[in-house]
Write a protein that binds this DNA or RNA. Structure first.
Lengths: 214, 214
DNA sequence: CCTACCGATCGGTAGG
DNA sequence: CCTACCGATCGGTAGG
């Protein structure tokens, strides 16, 4: 009986080693960004040389992409039923995520740094984040439509703007919180903003800003 | 009559040259980030060698800080009366800024990339952005208090969260817009979110999210 | 403001 | 998974 290539790749030891590397890479890329996060630092954390990392992942570039996919996969596994909730539950889930994020600065920083870095010229993570935001906006927009339907409201003009805004405010608060954790309450502020945006979609109101001035 | 040191530093030619360099640096740091944006690329844009840049600014680090200060100073000069408006006018100003930003992706990208990069270990721009957000949050919070007072509302519990959220949603939308300009309308979405948050501060409402679930 | 150069960092490859 | 090494990039300095 021969041992196939894919089976060798799947050896428990190798899988475990790769996971160690992925976690170390997340830490280094989170702390220093992709461009400034050296393979040697990742290697040190798992007790090998940087050539060993390249042996496992082929290139630094490929490692980055696996790091991003690994985190997403881990997060999805943590969901009930392994899928994202819908309607009002989605927004409750997002609020809960913000509370969770307030206790894992490392992961928050990795995403914040890498997503912003990804808009630079020819960044390897750009397609990943492009796809990620497209998917997330679609999910949030869908949740909005479900909520509107349940509430008997048919005003979906703002849904797309609101979906982007929900994700945006969560991301933006993370940056401010990472810069100054005592000045910004990540969880409470996220909750407030999400509720504000949801309320504006369901029962839109004019604001004093509407009077044109200046 | 002797020529003082400071006068030499102030020679029109030198000032103009430095401004050229600052603009070129903004372009390079915006396109590639600080860590990956080489002095040679900045030098090429203004027709000198990278040693010439260092002659003018001392170090890459110092150049970055001057770039950030230069942009802020330029923006303040563009304001009516050279100071930031207050009350509802501040929020109108922020909306107008979002519309303006939708037509200057380069500057938007520079701030988005550099602010996120600044949260990494020992980044030279970290104190700058820390200070910047502290100041901006204070100004937005003050505008909220003025608006509440004018409206006869005394509910400032949410003011600080709302101030951070306003800035956050503008920043977060910029990232999504830079990644996918056709999928996100930076100006319209910013306006929507700002109005949603302002409305929630002035006349807060419970939302369907309040029912605890899951 | 340039030429010339140093010192350090870093990703990747060879070859085992 | 390591040793050894290459090739390239880059910030900064000397010395003019």
């Amino acid at each position: 009986m021969s041992v196939s290539r894919s089976e060798r790749r799947t050896r428990p030891q190798t899988v475990a080693r790769r996971e160690e590397i992925l976690k170390a890479a997340m830490a280094t890329f989170g702390a220093k960004g992709y461009n400034k996060g050296p393979l040697t630092e990742i290697a040190d954390q798992v007790g090998m040389t940087h050539a060993g990392i390249l042996h496992h992942f082929g290139s630094k570039n490929a490692l980055l992409l696996e790091v991003l996919q690994y985190r997403d996969a881990t997060d999805v596994e943590a969901l009930p039923e392994h899928h994202i909730p819908d309607g009002a539950d989605l927004f409750r889930h997002l609020v809960r995520t913000a509370f969770l994020n307030a206790q894992r600065a490392g992961i928050v920083q990795a995403y914040a740094v890498l997503s912003a870095e990804s808009v630079t010229d020819d960044h390897p993570a750009r397609p990943f984040f492009q796809q990620r935001y497209t998917t997330l906006r679609g999910e949030v927009a869908h949740a909005f439509r479900v909520m509107c339907q349940e509430a008997g409201v048919d005003e979906p003009t703002t849904v797309d703007k609101a979906a982007a805004s929900i994700l945006a405010v969560m991301d933006g608060l993370q940056i401010q919180w990472l810069l100054d954790p005592t000045a910004v309450d990540l969880a409470e502020a996220s909750e407030f903003a999400i509720e504000a945006i949801v309320a504006q979609v369901l029962t839109p109101r004019e604001t004093p800003l509407r009077r044109p001035a200046d």
